[in-house]
Design a protein around this nucleic acid. Structure first.
Lengths: 187, 187, 187, 187
DNA sequence: AATGAATGAGGTTTCATTCAT
DNA sequence: TATGAATGAAACCTCATTCAT
């Protein structure tokens, strides 16, 4: 039941927004009553925090696995991360959008747990760029922190427009984006 | 007064969110009463629509000016757009965040006016890429629609993290991003 | 309207208790809506605090006037206070019961304002007893603090049983109690 | 278990009030679940009634024993009752406060059982005063019903302020109060 | 141009109670 | 004897909106 509530809430928060979705909306969508909601969650914010934690922990896990694979070059790791983020849209896209858009509705206490994790994800990419600079895969004069923000922009923004059921696959987009990031667009 | 209400609302919507900001919050912040608000706006949504329209029209104007400058190459136009978006963060960052985050709270009628304009901005970039492909500035095999999304990701995401009062200037970031987009990061 | 809400609330809190009286009960009893209540009070607790302050300030004023009357002996002042408390039951009895029973429902902040005033009322009686001991009206060996509690017990408890519309008047009860306090009951 | 629930409930009702204490509060405080509560009590009101009955029956028993002791004079009986009420504060103070404050939350049916017992306790004191008047211990012109209320005021009010662990003992307070009631405070 | 009083719908949350196990 | 899941009514409170002045 808790799982069911969480799943439905992610869909609703994605579609209508956190504040715009009432507990009534949530429980109606799964045919239970408000009491049931409060049996499993002590507040609406706790549910939001659950969703945040679950998402960022999952992303960090995925990232960790990729970065720990010593058989991959820095470029390959970068591609793997881009590909992971794109392919996750299908299953985790709603969570991701909630994560990026609704962080504001977390309590200060919850934020103090989430923000370091979010930053960690970005810093890991920054570290990957540094690694690539040192092993000669990437240009030595790159501003790693800004480039990391740029790469995250490319991937995270795709949650706003990419349709996993559309005519172009997540793998294709990942390839286009990785090539753009690595080689640029000029001739 | 209308201007004052709009300005303050943009700040508040940016900080707390549209649904989380009450009319009371708005009028309190400028020391008037709710009646005053409803003298100038017929609803909260009308105010939101005002903010949206003002932002996207301004962006389209800026873009239009850049794209119409025949003295610029495609690359230069691209740089100019990136630079325009970054430098706008200081004055328009709050509006931009409201634009991207709160579109959901517009009525269907308002959306039908806003969405085509938002799409137009992106399609203009797509067209610029096509133009660059044809005049030999950009690689001919680029997938323009996806690349346009990628470029918008880089710039739009910067509204989430770029601090105009920080140690790195908007111009520097624009240069880093344009170089990344044009040349990529590999050696 | 604020006055009306307060008056009705005192009646209802007296009859049913603070927690047992809903905002709905209050507004129904005067034919307005909940919004109206919250236009005048920011919370149910603020209303309770209003009632408390109004009551204790009134009692302290009354007491102050009696104690400041230099034409009265200590005994006469004591009688006047007892009489004042008894005669107040008719108009202030409901407030008094709310005051004694519902203090628990005040916030800590409100309590820190109310408790010193409540204590002041008692300490003023203690001082009156001391005064009577020194001017030879009262026995010199009295334990003033405990006796003050005893006198307040006699008067305050009367709010629980005394019916101002019954067959015995408040003046008669005040006389009986004053005689009991001054002379005791033994032969 | 039933005993444990009752004991904890008395503490909680005393501290926070009946309506302000939830079944959840009660069962949490003893580490069981709500089902357990409803195994022993059919409703929250039944528990409150249990507490009321237990208290008043106990008081009536104590009073009965004192009044039936033919070796005591009326004055001695009066002192014994005052002393009994004061000394009971330590063990029964919480019950007493619940008894006096929360009677309102009993059903009409429960009230019809409790009120006569409460009145009986007072009428027994009234009878004791009459007895003292007739045997020449108390003044013949006393208004017994009102004096009984006065005596109960002195003792019952002490539940509001007397601290059994403070510097003055219950026996000392009982002596001060009995002397005040018998001899008054004037010289 | 602006106010202040009032509304009413809907929000989150609490809680006594039920019941299958 | 005790649990845990679920209910549904009602609690306090918020807020966009209206309207007479």
């Amino acid at each position: 039941m808790k799982e069911k509530i969480t799943e439905k809430s992610i869909r609703l928060f994605d579609q209508k927004g956190f504040s715009e979705t009432s507990i009534q909306d949530i429980v109606d969508s799964i045919g239970v009553t408000k009491g049931t909601f409060y049996y499993y969650f002590s507040s609406k914010e706790e549910l939001l925090m659950d969703i945040h934690l679950r998402y960022i922990d999952d992303m960090l896990d995925n990232q960790h696995e990729i970065l720990g694979d010593d058989s991959k070059s820095s470029k390959e790791k970068l591609f793997a991360i881009v590909q992971m983020l794109l392919s996750n849209i299908k299953t985790q896209g709603a969570s991701a959008k909630v994560f990026f858009r609704e962080m504001r509705n977390l309590s200060d206490e919850s934020l103090s747990e989430i923000i370091p994790k979010r930053d960690q994800f970005r810093l890991n990419i920054e570290k990957l760029i540094e690694e690539g600079k040192q092993n000669g895969e990437f240009r030595a004069n790159l501003n790693s922190p800004i480039i990391a923000f740029g790469i995250l922009g490319v991937t995270n923004w795709s949650y706003q427009w990419f349709n996993p059921d559309g005519s172009i696959s997540d793998r294709e987009v990942a390839e286009i984006f990785t090539e753009m990031i690595l080689k640029g667009i000029e001739i």
